[in-house]
């Protein structure tokens, strides 16, 4: 027992960065709807509002904002988001500047870029995944993020 305790202490002492690295990335998620309204100039404009009074068939916009709020460089940032239950991904709607965007149709086990993603149909042959089969989205942020840096990634869905 004494030896085991010493071993654990040794491992902890050898991995100081794991213990002491401070979180630097803040991640916020919001869901909005688009509403057509008339502005002060009498023009019809589309504005985004927080999602409310949402009915089946309507479109929702999910936006995740990552932001380096720390003092250290953040690298290898990957944002993952499951398509919410009762919603269907809208083809081509994933966005994220400076990101490689990947989709999954198997619950997040495998990913491919949109248009490359395939699923195996009931007959055993491979075919392109349908938008409503998308289960997860992934954004791989290409650049490191200095303190103060950040960006938006997101996608649109239709409420079933």
């Amino acid at each position: 027992m004494k030896n085991l305790g010493i071993s654990i202490l040794a491992i902890l002492l050898l991995t100081p960065s794991l213990l002491w690295a401070k979180e630097v990335i803040d991640l916020t998620s919001k869901v909005e709807i688009e509403v057509v309204t008339t502005n002060e100039q009498g023009e019809q404009v589309t504005v985004r509002q927080p999602a409310s009074k949402v009915l089946p068939g309507e479109t929702l916009i999910y936006t995740n904002t990552y932001h380096n709020v720390g003092d250290d460089l953040a690298q290898n940032i990957v944002v993952n988001n499951a398509v919410p239950a009762h919603t269907s991904y809208i083809a081509g709607s994933a966005f994220g500047d400076g990101c490689e965007i990947l989709l999954s149709a198997d619950g997040g086990k495998s990913y491919a870029s949109e248009g490359e993603l395939t699923v195996v149909g009931d007959d055993g042959t491979s075919r392109p995944a349908l938008p409503e089969e998308i289960t997860h989205l992934r954004w791989i942020v290409r650049e490191y993020q200095k303190p103060g840096d950040g960006g938006d990634v997101g996608f649109r869905v239709r409420l079933q």
Binding site: E23, I25, A51, Y62, Q75, V79, N80, T87, L159
Partner: peptide
Amino acid sequence: ISNTAQASYSVGASSLSKSSNTSTFAVAEL
């Protein structure tokens, strides 16, 4: 309808992760 995003990243040799807030709304009645 709820949604939470996750981020993973590294600082130096450390791997870190962060969950977002959870956004939630109730489906209205048609």
